[in-house]
Structure formats: structure tokens, C-alpha cells
Design a protein around this nucleic acid. Structure first.
Length: 391
RNA sequence: GGAGGUGUGGCCGAGUGGACAAUGGCAGCAGACUGUAAAUCUGCCGGGCUCCGCCCUACGGAGGUUCGAAUCCUCCCGCCUCCA
């Protein structure tokens, strides 16, 4: 079954849609929790589902290194292997081209990684990456791309894009005729408008099942990041899902949704939770801070996650200070729930034509710890008639 | 009673004549994190100030040697080990 995407409502450039995959539907705009190795760190598939996730992201590079594609394939594919029954999107390893800087070399034919685990070489080609992802049975495969570093000159970014475009053509060619799931192309172009626009147009010709905006959140400023989205998202094929890779803070997401982006992923809610930084409707809470030592309030009184339902900030503070694993688990469950609720609010707002009213309380500038006070919320999340959450 | 050892900043623990307000670690106080080489990393951490520097107080206590002592000597106090 191939992917299909319907747009159910719009609000300005924003779209409220539904991505249908072989493993279920994803109501968009959607946030995809990151389970690099097949699971969100500290969270079971059941808990992920209960938090309201409808799709999970995993990473081909990491899975290829360990346990290896063959193992996943032998055990029935990534869904069976991980126990996550819903849709899965896998990143191709393109981000690792950037993040693993010293451990890889890029050439026209592909990327050669040196494993960060044992140094052994691993060759990724556009064709091989498509093949790997198909063998794992993922719902959405990402093309191999080169995520250029930042800063880069226009010339370097352009040369990088030419290489990535070549990979896009090869990936698309290999994918032709495949019926299960879909393949997304990835727009690069760094912070250069002409490049971004050209990349979007180049990719549109290849008729991918969806289009991603990559190469952001690599060090550029917020205005640059937002500009890249503003230049790119609106010119991508209207009828296909759009995915902003690796983004971001709630405010970044809200901004991108308003520009017509449908899918997001980010390690932030999970990693920050592990580091004691929690997103709440009252603002960002650094639970390790001494001020929470005796705080009897729930983390976020408006949240329905397991942490907020049963524990106080003081207890979370204590667990975190003590290095207790449960602190990371509860924090992750909470942050994920926060993000997922936030996405539900955005979907509902688009439905009501009220996107600009959605507050993203946790989206304040990094470092700003003092709550501004609750902002407007459209309606309780649960009242959304279009919500079709997995139970 | 005899012999030996030891006492360092909140804790543990380096340092045995100058480069020592004193290595490390922990605890503490903050900060960062955006397609996860991250349950990680960074800064501060005796007090004060006109804070890329200066001044006080500090290595059990009191004296002493020395240009100079956490480091050497004497006495005292506490603790540890072994022998009686």
C-alpha cells in the first residue's frame, strides 16, 4: 500500500491533513518522537502510544550499524522487531553526514562512514539506503542526503546540493514501482534563498511521495532557520506532505506549521527530559533547580501525563538529582505528551481557522525561565472532533 | 605504658620548602542541548573588592626555623594500627 495524503482543512498556508500509511494514519501536522535505535529512550512502545504518538522516527545509520539490517529483516522488519505497531519513518543517515563530521567522507557516489562504535567502515549509497529501508519495512523512507555544515559559503552549499540532487534522482529511480510506503526527498540549500528555491523546484520534478526540508538546526540563527522554512515550504508540491527535519522548539514548530509544514521530529523533548528540562504550559521548568526542592505542585497542572497525574515537582526534582532512571522516564513521557498535545492544539486551531491564537508557552526563547502566564488556548484538546488518536 | 602512623577547603582525597586560595572526584549553584557518537556537556564553587587584577582569612592548635612553610623543628590536642 502506497502512501496517500489528504488535506482536510487549511488556515492561511497551514494545512490540517491525514497521511495514510501501511501501518495506520497520521493526523497532521504531526510530531514524530525520535527513536533512533527503534525506541524512544526510556519509553516503551505502549507508553509512546499512550502519550498520543501516531508515528515514530528511527534511524537507518544507527540500525545498520547495530543490530544490522539483516537482523531486523530476519526478525520480520522494524515493526515486528521493535514492537511499535504504528507508522515508522526512518532517517537515511544524511544527518549523520553532518553530525559525525570526522568519521565520514562524502563523494559523488555516496558516503563512507567509519562506525562510531568500532571504527569499521560502512558505505551508504543512495540506492543502498533505499534498499535498506525497504528491507526493514518502514512506512516512510528518506533519501540519502548531505546535510551541509554551518556556516557554508553559497558555492559550497550549491556544490553540495548538486551532489544531493544526483542522489535524489538515483533514489527516486530505485524506488520506482515500489508499492509499500513512500519515499521522501530532502531539500537542502543552507541559508541561501535562491538555492533553497531551486532545490525545492528540482525535487518537485522528481515526484517524491513527500518532501522534507533538511539542513536546518545545524547552528544557524532563528531568523535564518525561519527564513529557510518560509522560502521553501510554500513552494513544495501542495498535495504532498512536507516534513521539517529535526525541528524543534514548540515555537519553531508553530512557525513552520503556519508556513504549511506537516511533519516534525526532534530529539529535544526526549533529550531535554533526560537533562531535567521540562516543557509546560507555565513555561520551561528546569526541574534540577533548587527552587523546586519543596514544590508540591504537579509539573504542569493542565497535563494528563503519568508524571503530572501522580507526582509533585519536588519528587521529580528529587529523582532527577538522585540520577534515578525514573526521572528520565517520567520527564520524557511528560515532554512527549506536551509536544503531542501541542500538535493536537495546532491541528484543531487550523480546523477552526484560529492558528494564530495558539499559544506555545514552552516556546519562549531559551533561557527565559519565568512564565509569562497562560496564553490563550482554543479549546480543550479532547474536544477535537477530528482527533482519531490510536487508543 | 611502648612503637609507628595520621589530621588539607561541605565530604573524600592529592600535594612534603617557593610556580598554592591549594590537582582530582563528589556534593552544591547555574547554563547548554533542535533529522540523538548525549541518563551528556560547560561554567562557578573560602570571603571581600574599583573582579583579565588586588586585599583578607586559610591546610588540627600554639610556638619556632627560613627571604619564603600545607610542606622542616618543638610542644599540645584528636584519630588509627601494632606491641604490652
Amino acid at each position: 500500500m502506497p502512501l496517500s495524503f489528504q488535506i482536510l482543512a487549511t488556515d492561511g498556508l497551514a494545512r490540517r491533513g491525514r497521511l495514510t500509511t501501511p501501518h495506520g494514519a497520521v493526523e497532521t501536522p504531526a510530531f514524530m518522537p525520535v527513536g533512533t535505535l527503534g525506541a524512544v529512550k526510556g519509553v516503551t512502545p505502549q507508553e509512546l502510544e499512550a502519550a498520543g504518538a501516531s508515528i515514530m522516527l528511527s534511524n537507518l545509520y544507527h540500525l545498520a550499524l547495530r543490530p544490522g539490517i539483516e537482523v531486523v529483516e530476519r526478525l520480520g522488519g522494524l515493526h515486528a522487531f521493535t514492537g511499535w505497531p504504528g507508522p515508522i519513518l526512518t532517517d537515511s543517515g544524511g544527518f549523520q553526514v553532518w553530525s559525525l563530521g570526522g568519521l565520514r567522507t562524502v563523494d559523488a557516489g555516496g558516503v563512507t562512514f567509519r562506525s562510531h562504535l568500532d571504527g569499521s567502515p560502512l558505505r551508504f549509497t543512495p540506492e543502498g539506503v533505499v534498499d535498506f529501508q525497504e528491507r526493514m519495512g518502514v512506512d516512510v523512507a528518506m533519501m540519502l542526503d548531505e546535510c551541509p555544515p554551518w556556516p557554508v559559503t553559497l558555492e559550497e552549499a550549491a556544490a553540495s546540493w548538486e551532489r544531493t540532487l544526483g542522489w535524489a534522482r538515483r533514489a527516486r529511480e530505485v524506488w520506482k514501482g515500489r508499492q509499500a510506503g513512500g519515499l521522501f526527498g530532502i531539500v537542502q540549500g543552507s541559508v541561501y534563498r535562491e538555492l533553497r528555491e531551486r532545490a525545492a523546484a528540482d525535487l518537485a520534478e522528481l515526484d517524491f511521495d513527500g518532501y522534507a526540508i533538511g539542513g536546518v538546526s545545524v547552528g544557524e540563527t532563528e531568523p535564518e532557520r525561519h527564513a529557510a522554512v518560509e522560502w521553501t515550504a510554500p513552494v513544495l508540491p501542495a498535495g504532498k506532505p512536507r516534513y521539517l527535519m529535526g525541528v524543534g522548539y514548540p515555537e519553531d514548530i508553530r512557525h513552520a506549521v503556519a508556513q504549511g509544514v506537516d511533519l516534525f521530529d526532534c530529539v529535544l523533548p526526549a533529550r531535554n527530559a533526560r537533562h531535567g528540562v521540562l516543557f509546560t504550559r507555565q513555561g520551561v521548568i528546569k526541574i534540577k533547580n533548587a527552587r523546586y526542592k519543596d514544590d508540591p505542585l504537579p509539573l504542569d497542572p493542565e497535563c494528563g501525563c503519568p508524571a503530572c497525574r501522580r507526582t509533585s515537582r519536588a519528587f521529580l526534582h528529587h529523582l532527577t538529582r538522585s540520577g534515578e532512571l525514573t526521572a528520565a522516564v517520567l520527564g520524557t513521557l511528560h515532554n512527549l505528551r506536551y509536544y503531542l498535545d501541542f500538535m493536537a492544539d495546532l491541528r484543531q486551531a487550523i480546523q477552526l481557522g484560529a492558528l494564530t491564537d495558539v499559544a506555545s508557552l514552552a516556546g519562549r526563547a531559551p533561557g527565559e525561565d519565568t512564565p509569562r502566564g497562560p496564553g490563550p488556548r482554543v479549546l480543550p484538546v479532547s474536544s477535537d472532533p477530528l482527533e482519531q488518536r490510536r487508543s
